[in-house]
Simulated assay, not measured.
Amino acid sequence: MSLARIVRTAIQIADAEGLSALSLRGAAARLGVAAMSTYRYVPSKDDLVPHMADAAFGEEPYRADAPEGWRARIELGSRTLWSLYRKHPWLARLGSRTRPLGALDGHGLDPTTLFDIHVLLYSPVQGLAVHLEMEADAEASTGQSEDQWMDSRAPALQELVESGRFSTFTKVVAAFEDGYDLRLDALFEFGLKAILDGPTSIVERQEAVT
């Protein structure tokens, strides 16, 4: 028994069933030990979760060979963060606010502007990743995948379309040949360029005057 084993087991439970399904008692059962024995290492679930986050974020350590240029480094950080959210959907509710800051440093930005841009760059990634956690939680609680759930709701959606009460919704839905898939990876790729384009002019303008 060790804190590291408890953390690894807790991560496995959260990955499979969601953070809401995690408990110290459940982790102890998975480890095959008495529930009280885990309290020697961590007093509560609230104390356990930061250890889990540290371990999960530690799977992608700082890279000494980070690319040149703030935009390339932000893009790398975004993709790294997205891959971690993909592996551990529960991380989306915790977020990461510290490690990528260095990519924006040294470009003449005042501290407030620097941090504002940092938050605006990474918040959409985290926000999109919340859907990963929602999907994982829903599948764990219902036993249905997203496609299975949507299939089960097809009659209700068809009734909504045929009601005529929502003309724009009806028009958009009718335009899809095979329905709409929430392709989160594609949405991440689609949005990343737009997210990076926004602050580019601010950074470049500030670099020009410093």
Rank of each mutant, 00 (worst) to 15 (best):
R30L: 08
F57H: 02
G32R: 08
A34P: 02
A66P: 07
A64P: 06
R97H: 12
D54M: 02
T80G: 11
E68I: 05
L48R: 05
I74P: 01
G32Y: 11
R79Y: 07
P61N: 10
L76M: 15
R63W: 09
G102M: 13
Y85Q: 08
I13V: 15
F57K: 00
L81N: 04
A56H: 10
L81C: 04
R97Y: 14
L101I: 10
S37R: 11
V33E: 02
A66I: 06
A35S: 07
E68S: 09
L91C: 08
R30Q: 12
A16D: 02
L84P: 07
L19A: 11
I13K: 13
S20M: 09
A16F: 03
S44T: 04
R97P: 02
A35R: 00
A34G: 10
W70Y: 11
S23R: 13
E75A: 15
R99W: 00
I74C: 05
R71A: 06
G77P: 12
W70L: 04
G32C: 11
T98E: 12
A92K: 11
A72Y: 01
E75V: 11
L101M: 14
R63L: 14
I13N: 11
R97S: 08
M36D: 14
A53W: 05
G26E: 00
P61S: 10
D47C: 01
Y62T: 13
G102R: 15
L94A: 01
A28H: 03
A27I: 07
A66N: 06
S20Q: 11
S20E: 09
S96P: 02
R79F: 07
L76Y: 12
H88E: 03
S78F: 00
A14Q: 01
R40C: 03
G69K: 02
K45F: 01
G77S: 15
A27W: 06
T38V: 15
L22S: 05
A64N: 10
G102Q: 12
R30D: 04
I74M: 06
S20K: 12
K87W: 05
F57I: 00
L91P: 04
W90G: 07
R97L: 08
T80W: 06
W82Y: 10
R79K: 07
A29V: 09
A28I: 04
D47E: 12
D15A: 07
E75Y: 09
P100D: 08
I74H: 00
P61V: 09
S96W: 09
A53N: 05
R73T: 04
L101V: 10
A66K: 09
R93Y: 01
T80A: 12
A72K: 14
L81W: 08
E59A: 14
S78D: 01
S96Q: 14
G32E: 09
A28Q: 06
E59G: 15
S78P: 01
G58M: 12
E68D: 13
A92N: 03
G32W: 10
G26R: 15
G18M: 07
D46M: 01
W82R: 12
T80V: 14
A21Y: 05
G26Y: 03
E60A: 15
L22T: 07
